[in-house]
């Protein structure tokens, strides 16, 4: 099998994989994927699953912001506007030929089909909360007597003095922030639990992130979910600012190990 899939790679092009979808999906001529020199979006089907692909020259360099956005927008569009379950394929995955894509679909057919069935009628939201700096730091100083002492000691000293004390102060604060983040992530998950099917806490992007969590939400419950986020944002307002991204494809609920 491996040999047959490499037969037609001599042309200098390959098949860029965007994602996997049920086979009963069709691509409209207007579907937008990555831009030139990457070709238009097409589909390769096998049984009940299919891959969204574009032919691409092998010497192209991918990863410009517009490449990533186009990839993301195509798959989010499929999931949200198209109401089709989609398994994104890791960005930058290119197979040598359409035959190789068909073989992949054949070999992994049942796993992909099952994973797609799991995502039917579901979308993702990411909720991020970021601390209000003043509230966070005042809270930490109130909780950590050593930090408050160090702050008093450092008062009036020039910026480059007492570096060790500064580092110690910062360390205490950083650890306290981490503890708050863990607690707040748990609070967020607990508060939105009734409105989602699953949650996936994500790593912090910023030192003052209070929480970043992906939620898998039933399409029919989208309004209930976003209303719940809005109410929660109100109760958290003096402590952290909340922001929601979504609905999108279920990026954080894709079994990355499907087929491995």
């Amino acid at each position: 099998m491996a040999t047959s899939s490499t037969m037609d790679t001599g042309s200098g092009t390959g098949q860029l994989l965007y994602g996997l979808v049920p086979a009963d999906v069709e691509v409209t001529p207007q579907a937008r994927g990555l831009s030139d020199p990457v070709g238009p979006v097409g589909m390769i089907r096998h049984g009940e699953v299919a891959a969204l692909v574009s032919e691409t020259p092998l010497d192209v360099r991918l990863g410009r912001p517009e490449d990533l956005l186009a990839y993301r927008e195509l798959l989010d569009g499929v999931a949200v506007t198209g109401d089709v379950p989609v398994l994104p394929v890791r960005f930058g995955t290119v197979l040598g030929s359409t035959t190789a894509v068909s073989e992949l679909l054949a070999v992994r057919h049942d796993e992909y089909k099952a994973a797609l069935a799991e995502l039917e009628g579901r979308v993702e939201y990411v909720v991020r909360a970021r601390y209000v700096e003043r509230a966070l730091l005042a809270g930490v100083l109130a909780e950590e007597p050593e930090a408050a002492d160090l702050r008093d000691q450092l008062r009036g000293l020039p910026e480059d003095a007492a570096v060790e004390l500064r580092i110690r102060l910062g360390e205490i604060v950083a650890q306290a922030v981490e503890a708050h983040r863990a607690a707040d992530t748990e609070r967020l998950v607990e508060a939105l639990g009734p409105y989602c099917l699953a949650d996936a806490p994500l790593p912090a992007h910023h030192e003052q992130d209070a929480a970043r969590v992906a939620f898998l939400v039933e399409r029919g419950r989208r309004t209930a979910f976003t209303d719940a986020v809005r109410d929660l944002a109100e109760t958290w307002r003096d402590w952290a600012t909340m922001r929601t991204i979504g609905p999108t494809a279920a990026w954080d609920f894709v079994p990355v190990t499907v087929g491995r």
Partner: peptide, 26 residues
Amino acid sequence: VVGMILDKGVVIDAHLAVSLVGIRLL
């Protein structure tokens, strides 16, 4: 926004790696 998707998505397995083509990622 972009960072959110970079390490996401199905990884195509090694046993088909012979047909995985190395596109240069920035």
